[in-house]
Design a protein around this nucleic acid. Structure first.
Lengths: 220, 220
DNA sequence: GTCTATACCGTGATAGAC
DNA sequence: GTCTATCACGGTATAGAC
């Protein structure tokens, strides 16, 4: 279809092809030969640039992880600064957490959209989550949790973490773009409509946090 | 380790072994030989009983899908009957949706726990979601959505569907048992603690539904 | 240094003989 | 039901071209 492979270096083409295929089929569902073929390069070239298959997977994942993580940090800090000494609202904190993904998606670069699905794959995989999430993303999560603690000073720490877990799940399924919501609504809602997904997710999870983390009488 | 393979037929052993391996490594991450070896049967026997690899995967998925779906239907109808002509509360509807998973998990049969992770894998996979969800689970979802519509008569249908999408995501990540919450909390919260996960999920998502689906002034 | 052609050797799914 | 042979395909190393 598109023919402007000329503008990218071969090693970028490999990363992009791998990103797209890994996102859709997972690590084991893709062969080095498929990647090379989609990137229109020789089979051995991916090996030459990135080492073995697993290292290529790491390279694909980390390339945009760094960017996303840096943006996340910046947005969260700016949001804190902007709130000044008044407390940040829950909505502001959650929005700061989601905004970098929205920005990335709006860049219109299809690679980012593929990366979203890859991130969903890693988030939900028992195997890869452990390998890839700690190095980059987990650090930003700690900061996010800290911000939530300030906004919900009476909450139990476990409750905040469970709520974060639900956010993370809702987000992961959104990133995965499985097409299920399209099917269930006969096309009325679209998996690719990140804008609506994020706009509704913010009030949804903010209300959830408030309910679960409100001061309680008792819990055994 | 365990040696009581005698009590199960060979074909059950194959299904159980496949379930466990597919749940952890996905469809492509598992070979027929690994399955046979774990089930302690000959390589060709899985083929003999279930046909090719993809058909075995379908068999594994559908075995418990039928059970879960039937329970879900029963629980939802009983909950509706019990509410009588008074409307069901949101919490009751959500609880009815989640209860079958809780029951399954509490059966202590490890197969169910593996199946949960497999379900999470299928839910979040762009490829398998489309193939496997429509036949069994999607029908129950329609009933669930209908119940939600009755409880939220003023809501826009799209909003209900997006909220269901968030529930589905939170649920999927819970079922996946990735161990991430354990890591982030230093072991304070546990991925395997379904009881807490469900108990907090109900108020969390109920509040989210109420917030997103409350009557609004405007939306373009 | 970047890249290609090719060869190696293990492993996989599966069919057919037993 | 089981054992085994087949044959394609996978990851990767190597040799050398540009």
């Amino acid at each position: 279809m598109a023919k402007e492979k000329e503008s990218e270096s071969k090693s970028e083409r490999i990363l992009n092809a791998a990103e797209e295929l890994f996102a859709r089929h997972g690590y084991d569902g893709v062969t080095m030969r498929q990647i090379a073929s989609r990137a229109e390069v020789d089979v051995a070239l991916a090996n030459y640039h990135f080492g073995k298959k697993e290292e290529l997977f790491h390279a694909v994942f980390n390339r945009r992880a760094e960017i996303l993580s840096a943006t996340r940090r910046k947005v969260l800090m700016e949001s804190q600064k902007q709130a000044g000494k008044g407390k940040q609202s829950l909505e502001q904190i959650i929005e700061a957490f989601l905004l970098p993904l929205k920005i990335a998606q709006e860049s219109q670069e299809p690679g980012w959209r593929n990366y979203m699905a890859l991130l969903a794959y890693v988030l939900t995989s028992p195997v890869w989550n452990e390998v890839l999430m700690p190095t980059v993303f987990d650090k930003r999560v700690e900061e996010f949790i800290d911000a939530l603690k300030s906004a919900l000073p009476d909450a139990r720490e476990e409750d905040i973490h469970w709520c974060y877990h639900y956010v993370s799940g809702a987000l992961a399924l959104t990133l995965a773009q499985t097409g299920r919501i399209d099917r269930l609504t006969g096309g009325q809602c679209k998996s690719t409509d990140f804008d609506t997904a994020y706009n509704l997710m913010i009030p949804f999870v903010a209300a959830g946090f408030r309910e679960v983390c409100k001061p309680k009488k008792k819990r055994k």
